[in-house]
């Protein structure tokens, strides 16, 4: 019995090592490629150990030869804007769906779910003409607006299930005491669902940070590009050296990964309390 358990632990450790390598390799390869001179890269003899002494040089080329930092700032604006706007609407909507009965509740819930099915590639054309009419093309605000339409329903579902899971008694007595629903939501509910709010915030932030299709279609002006568009513009062009391209990919990836790792535990508990509970 003990032997079998040892064996199980051994197999598990091996599996863990294998899965970690599979998950880690492409990440490591981004770093490694960024740290290898381009001519070496195309001779097919890419070193297995990144040469970090090149990092300063590589990043200075990135900041002087490309507007990548500007694009990163634009991405940050879009991502934070998407997060704020999504959470504001999602929290209020989730509270209504969780705590009230009202006519039209079912169809509204379906509306939120159904947006998960809509392909961006289908909506991009009608949205383009809508944005042209509203004067939102070539504006980062426009990207915030369109990203929110896709990110907000996800946040709403996470928050609705979180609110479903907290007891109603406290709110009830506060309501009897004459507190307004909005202040109940702010003072009592929001602090209790903070982990799920964090999870929803990370997920909506990623939507804004990652989004490529609308950003590329709606923004023509190169200085207003976001990082995903800028990075994708390097694909298939050969004037930017490959190590510079990969250092851009690295700079674009690091904030997302760090943010995600910091929030990881909150995401797990948010998802536990959230929609996908077993």
């Amino acid at each position: 019995m003990i032997g079998r358990r040892r064996l199980g632990t051994g197999i598990r450790a091996l599996l863990a090592l294998l899965l970690t390598c599979l998950a880690g390799f492409p990440l490591y390869w981004i770093i490694n490629t960024a740290m290898t001179p381009t001519d070496v890269l195309f001779q097919g003899g890419q070193n297995l150990v990144p040469d970090f002494s090149r990092s300063l040089q590589v990043f200075s080329v990135l900041t002087t030869d490309t507007p990548f930092l500007r694009w990163m700032a634009n991405s940050a604006f879009v991502a934070f804007g998407t997060t704020l706007l999504s959470l504001l609407m999602a929290t209020m909507g989730a509270y209504a769906l969780s705590r009230y009965k009202f006519v039209g509740k079912g169809p509204m819930g379906f509306l939120f779910f159904a947006t998960q099915m809509l392909p961006e590639a289908l909506l991009v054309v009608p949205l383009y003409s809508l944005f042209a009419a509203l004067g939102l093309l070539n504006q980062l605000h426009g990207l915030v607006l369109v990203n929110t339409a896709f990110a907000m329903p996800v946040a709403l579902f996470i928050l609705k299930s979180a609110i479903d899971n907290i007891p109603y008694e406290l709110e009830e007595s506060a309501r009897v005491d004459g507190c307004s629903p909005l202040s109940i939501l702010q003072v009592m509910v929001v602090p209790l669902v903070a982990p799920s709010m964090a999870a929803a915030a990370v997920i909506t932030f990623f939507d804004g940070w990652n989004e490529y299709l609308f950003a590329t279609t709606f923004i023509e002006d190169r200085s207003s590009w976001v990082a995903s568009t800028g990075l994708a513009s390097f694909i298939g062009e050969f004037s930017t050296p490959l190590d510079t391209v990969f250092s851009a990919a690295l700079v674009f990836t690091i904030p997302a990964v760090v943010f995600f790792l910091l929030m990881q535990r909150k995401i797990v508990s948010g998802l536990t309390a959230g929609s996908v509970k077993g």
Partner: peptide
């Protein structure tokens, strides 16, 4: 868990 956080365009590049 990290791959989930890597932006799609960076995934494509690598």
């Amino acid at each position: 868990v990290m791959p989930w956080a890597v932006p799609t365009v960076a995934v494509v590049l690598v």
